[in-house]
Amino acid sequence: MLNIKNLEATIDNKHILKGLNLNIKPGEVHAIMGPNGSGKSTLANVLSGKNGYEIKGDIKYNGESLSELSTEERAQKGIFLAFQYPLEIPGVNTNTFLRTSLNSVRKAQGDKELDTLTFLKLIKEKASELGIDEKFLSRQLNVGFSGGEKKKNEILQMKLLQPKLSILDETDSGLDIDALRIVADGVNSYKSKENAFLIITHYQRLLDYIKPDYVHVLSNGKIIKTGDADLGVQLEKTGYSNIV
């Protein structure tokens, strides 16, 4: 699904990713761990097509070169990024945003756009799966939401848009244990043979709930070690300094 070869990324003359290789197949869950400043969020931004990065190397997504695609085209083709810091958009109703988003994706994929009623039925269903109160959907997007509510909203959007590749950028940060469980359940219920996950995190604790197939250690812009779920557990005990 995703093949990254010798990826380099530079922003504001800072060389951040320095030859990163990663292959993800459908149905797999990959975790990327690493110390602060190792390039984890940069990887998420580069994959989703954020402006401002100078890119070298090659990223293929389902055989297609990503560098040709805009941010929205990538999203429409099924790449989803759960933001570390979801943005507030004042005056925009959460429901309106979610419906506009879903219909943009559906339209691009050649599906019929949903009318308001059908959409409302769908979103209520998805929200209740995540234990999200309906009232929350008529509030302004992320405005005045707690950290936990913002992250739950990201997972709700993921389940709504049904992406093929979901990138979770430190979705566990700032979550209490209950919210963490809800977010993890949301991810687990969406896991399938067709779709894949790239989970970026500092800590093992999210991986206690979402079992990864692979754990990669990112350091200084490169993946320096890859293992199975046990690598995460080991890192939690020994820290990064022993590896880095």
Binding site: K50, P86, P90, G91, V92, S101
Partner: peptide, 29 residues
């Protein structure tokens, strides 16, 4: 805000749709 636009783009909205959404939100009252 560039970040707001990026967020909307990542949800599949193109630049025009994103601007329209943000600006209409700003004008809502």
């Amino acid at each position: 805000n560039e970040e707001q636009l990026y967020y909307c783009n990542q949800r599949g909205l193109d630049q025009e749709e994103a601007v329209s959404l943000i600006v209409n939100g700003f004008c809502k009252e």
